[in-house]
Amino acid sequence: MKPTSTDLGLVARVAHLHKSYGTTNTRVNALTDVSVGIRRGEFTAIMGPSGSGKSTLMHIMAGLDTASSGSVWLGDTDISGLDDSNLTVLRRRRVGFIFQSFNLVPTLDISGNILLPFELDGRAPTAEEQAWIDRLIAVLGLTDRLRHRPHELSGGQQQRVAIARALATRPDLVFADEPTGNLDSRTSREVLTLLQTASREYGQSIAMVTHDPVAASYADRIVLLNDGRVVDDRSRSTPEEISSIMLGMEALS
């Protein structure tokens, strides 16, 4: 019998993943034969140049998009075979998201946005969850903003709300696509430290897509993509090391 993801200590996994867009004559191969696992409790960075397939990989791992071929597991569930509503419930319970932009529901205020995952699940946060949410709100500096609507916040503030929402339910895995892309360096550091803390102290598994070597240096592990393939997989590195690898890669492509 094949080992399950859990046996391997993985929270998500793809094997021989291919993804192409367009028709035969305009075909773009966004991902080519990608096999990679995200380890439970770790903070993983997915890096690579623009257009290398990072967002595509994240979307497919999270069940937001479908693969052209290959297998995708979330925990021990093979999600390539799931229908849309099962996939949705899985996402609701087990995955958190932080997107590059357009993260918040415009009709809900900040508090409503943060509590949305609970509401979608038809329950209120437990006392313990509420305490965690309050702490997230305080750390992210959103205490005075709870009654505001998203359009009344700056881009960075909106991003922080999305982070609070993604971490609020303590999902199995949080996917973050350039979560610090819109933030100044001080706020970025705070956010990254928060993600790191969530991972170290609470065992939160996080997969973060980023360009930024400094952001990636907060991660326990760095997976490098180039032109739709995994080209490197390394443990914690300094920003300088990561920069030089990235530069080398850009020179090649």
Partner: peptide
């Protein structure tokens, strides 16, 4: 469409 996409990503079923 985009707002509906976000809701689905967060766990609203198509139904």
């Amino acid at each position: 469409t985009r707002e509906l996409g976000l809701l689905r990503a967060l766990g609203f079923t198509a139904r």
